[in-house]
Amino acid sequence: MNEAVVFECFSYAYPKTEPVLNEIEFVVPRGSFTVITGPSGAGKSTICRAMAGIVPNYYGGRSAGRVLVDGEDTAGQRIADLTRFVGLVLDDYESQLVSLTVEEEILFGLYNRGLAPAEALPAMRKALNEVGLTGKEKLRLDELSGGQRQRLAIASVLAYKPDVLVLDEAASALDPEGAESLYRMLDELRRDYNLTVIVVEHELAYVLPYATQMLAVVDGRVAACGALDEAFSALWTKPELRALVPDLWQIKFTMEAYLNRKLGEWRTAAEAAAALQTVLTKGETEEYDQRRTG
């Protein structure tokens, strides 16, 4: 099976509230790096929770449609069982850390799953190595920086080897360098272990170099979905959704309109500059400058 997660016309309402998700339909292929974006309150966190079975199994409420994880419907399944396949790092990752030291935090989840110390200890060391926290096993949580705590939350999920890693606004409390380093690490993990990575992110510039597909959610509905070019193009056609397109791609679409030519996929500012240098002839650059300055 090539699909890691499938949303089949999934709708959901928390108890005593209006629906927060309406007929969500999308597929996350195995080994992909999917970014979910959208305005605050659009339903992004609820989508993440639906993948881990928290919605509707933990909160209750009303739901329709299905969420399939590894081909199985999440409805009615125990969250602990689903976490063997989907690892979720919550947006409030600080509160997700429940133990007193780094090693205890990881071992806690492993022992809860019945692993013997002989298996759990190597798994703990491997997970810490993967997130760059080797040698910090004995540190107390209050001795870690915000970025290190974030990495520990990821390590505690990675330790039991899920196929899908879901991060809800993972970089919200990190500085730009921390955020870039986090996403670089996630992409390396994805490539090394064929991990499926799904992240919720507002600042798309951080994930552009790594994302293979995107889902834009607005008011609990899918506004755009698919490969980056396809999804951003769909958003660009609707003026009210253009703000969701990252700056680099806004420039790209504007340039394409001026030049009447496709400019390929821009992942980084350096790639954009190189592409422009290749594409634009000197005359075109001057013409563009003249048109821009009016």
């Binding site: 933990y58 602990a80 976490t83 919550l90 809860n112």
Partner: peptide, 9 residues
């Protein structure tokens, strides 16, 4: 509480 569920506690 949610985190404990996710950790199989």
């Amino acid at each position: 509480a949610l985190s404990l569920e996710l950790k199989g506690f």
